[in-house]
Amino acid sequence: MKRNRWGQQTRQDNVECGRDIILDAARACYAEKGVTATKLDDIARKAHISRRTVYRYFPNKHAIVQEVVDEQALVFFTRMQSYLKDKDECFPALIKSIILYVVTYGPRVPGHTMLMSSINTGETGMKFITSPKIFGYWEIVLRGPFENARLNGEINHDISLQEIIAWTARVIFSFIQFPVEKKRLARVIDRFVVTAIESGTSKNL
């Protein structure tokens, strides 16, 4: 059955409804042909609207990709928080657990698989790393443990939470793109991530 277009003669009264329709169409296009190959015209056709209507809700294609990335990240961060809630680890060990969890389970989540596959990383990779929303999700997960670790002398005093978040995100992205065996990954994290975060005091505990 042919679906009526809502972009030429009518507007969606609810702005969020219009945005959701476009985002649903974008996700469908990304699943079918990849993020990079998807054009605004493809999304418009899938949503049964004109290209001009898309611009009422999003300034460009990159804004749509970023919105999809941010939404998928929120879903994954919610899962990760559930995974971490019962863990009682020092901060460096927590960072190790997070990296192992995201690298191991991230590729198994359908939305992450779609966005982080090799054909899509050119469009999505840096959006996962530099998004202010995703940075905010990291802060929600790590702010409390980080401040406690500072008070307890577990981590180097000259390392900021922002630096840890940025480095952790890049390490995760690198190992998702270039996977290694889990035991080797754990060893690399111990040598080059945990050691960099730990304070001299905590290393001697």
Score class of each variant (00 low, 15 high):
residue 63 A to M: 05
residue 197 I to H: 05
residue 40 L to T: 14
residue 15 V to G: 01
residue 195 T to S: 15
residue 51 R to H: 10
residue 180 V to S: 02
residue 174 S to D: 09
residue 160 S to V: 06
residue 169 A to G: 10
residue 157 H to V: 14
residue 182 K to A: 09
residue 164 I to C: 09
residue 80 M to G: 01
residue 165 I to M: 01
residue 21 I to C: 10
residue 177 Q to H: 09
residue 31 A to W: 06
residue 59 P to R: 09
residue 124 T to A: 04
residue 121 T to G: 00
residue 18 G to Q: 07
residue 104 T to P: 01
residue 44 A to E: 02
residue 10 T to L: 11
residue 75 V to S: 12
residue 20 D to F: 10
residue 143 R to N: 11
residue 44 A to N: 03
residue 48 H to Q: 13
residue 44 A to P: 02
residue 98 I to A: 05
residue 76 F to R: 01
residue 146 F to Y: 15
residue 142 L to I: 08
residue 112 H to M: 15
residue 159 I to T: 14
residue 191 R to P: 00
residue 184 R to M: 04
residue 17 C to L: 14
residue 21 I to L: 15
residue 118 S to M: 07
residue 134 I to Q: 01
residue 41 D to C: 02
residue 168 T to S: 13
residue 179 P to H: 06
residue 11 R to Q: 13
residue 114 M to V: 14
residue 25 A to G: 11
residue 100 L to S: 11
residue 201 T to P: 00
residue 125 G to F: 01
residue 102 V to K: 02
residue 3 R to W: 05
residue 59 P to N: 09
residue 146 F to I: 07
residue 145 P to S: 04
residue 205 L to A: 12
residue 155 I to S: 03
residue 147 E to M: 11
residue 175 F to G: 01
residue 118 S to P: 00
residue 172 I to L: 06
residue 139 E to W: 00
residue 190 D to S: 08
residue 20 D to C: 09
residue 74 L to G: 13
residue 79 R to C: 06
residue 15 V to W: 07
residue 40 L to N: 07
residue 52 R to V: 14
residue 79 R to E: 15
residue 122 G to T: 05
residue 9 Q to A: 12
residue 203 K to N: 11
residue 103 V to I: 14
residue 31 A to K: 13
residue 128 F to D: 01
residue 30 Y to E: 05
